[in-house]
Amino acid sequence: MRYEIRVDGELTETLAKAFPELDHVVVSGHTILFGRVLDEAHLYGLLARCQSLGLRVLEMRQAPQ
C-alpha cells in the first residue's frame, strides 16, 4: 500500500530523517510524506512517530498504486 501523510509546517531535512522509509516533498507550508507502508501496524507506527515528534497530521490517505 502506498500512503501520503500531510503534516503542518515545512519539515527540515534533519527531522525528515526520522522517516527514512518515506520520501517527502514540501509544499507551501505543508510537508507531504509519501511511500510504501508495509501494513496497518506500520501505518499506526508512522502516526505515533508524527505524534512523538510534535507534528500535526492534517491529512492521511491511501495513494493510488
Binding site: D8, E10, L11, T12, L15, T31, G54
Partner: peptide, 8 residues
Amino acid sequence: DRTTIGDF
C-alpha cells in the same frame, strides 16, 4: 517562518 514548530 513555516518550518514545523517543534523542529524549528
